[in-house]
């Protein structure tokens, strides 16, 4: 099947799929950033139980396979009387996993700050929160731009697990298997989806590079 035939038959579905993938990616990434920051604050807090829980959270969600997490959310949670919609399940899975990686990146971003800076800020009388706000966070965020860009791409790639549940509307991977089981889409359907994924990844990467060049700290 040629591209034009495919697009005339499934064009609107493809557009919807692209929008769904973008929506999932942006929502998950935004939520993952928020949760990642909260988890990171817990990890550097002096309160041991919070540290332990946050470390455990990160270890669980950076090591669990996406398929495994999604299956637990979709098929196992109803046994605990927690029934979530397919979309919520997918969104939860694609948020929890990147949030753990987000925290890891922020931690390593913070580890680039030398102890001297913290000591200096203390000796000029900054309170703890002032040190965090004015010294630690700006540097941690600036040096995390590139990892976070990669995180956004990998979040987008993670949203492909949505094809494992009957999501409506479908996203970019789901629609390919749909077309291939309903028509002889053949290789064309794959090429279109692959192109859309890859194009988006490259654009995100370029924007990330641009921002990084603007805010990078030259040491």
């Amino acid at each position: 099947m040629s591209i034009s035939e495919l697009l005339s038959q499934f064009g609107d579905k493809y557009l919807l799929a692209l929008i769904t993938t973008y929506k999932l990616t942006i929502c998950s990434f935004g939520l993952a950033l928020i949760i990642g920051v909260i988890i990171t604050v817990m990890r550097i807090s002096p309160i041991t139980p919070l540290k332990v829980v946050a470390d455990l959270y990160v270890q669980i969600f950076r090591n669990i396979p996406g398929a495994s997490l999604l299956i637990v959310l979709v098929y196992a949670l109803p046994y605990l009387n927690i029934v979530l919609s397919y979309y919520t399940c997918v969104l939860t899975a694609t948020t929890l996993i990147p949030s753990a990686f987000c925290s890891e990146y922020l931690m390593s971003g913070m580890n680039t700050i030398s102890p001297g800076q913290i000591e200096a800020s203390r000796s000029i009388g900054m309170t703890f929160m002032q040190t965090i706000r004015n010294v630690v966070l700006p540097q941690a965020i600036r040096s995390s731009v590139l990892p976070l860009t990669n995180l956004m791409v990998s979040t987008m790639l993670t949203t492909a697990i949505a094809s494992q549940v009957p999501l409506n509307p479908m996203e970019l991977t789901g629609i390919v298997s749909y077309i291939n089981t309903h028509a002889v889409g053949g290789i064309t359907a794959f090429v279109i989806s692959a192109f859309l994924y890859c194009g988006t990844a490259v654009i995100i990467g370029q924007v990330g590079n641009l921002i990084d060049r603007k805010v990078r700290i030259l040491r």
Binding site: L157, I161, T173, V176, C198
Partner: peptide, 10 residues
């Protein structure tokens, strides 16, 4: 790097 594993699998 820019294409999800699942798409390759399908």
């Amino acid at each position: 790097r820019g294409i999800p594993t699942l798409l390759f699998i399908y």
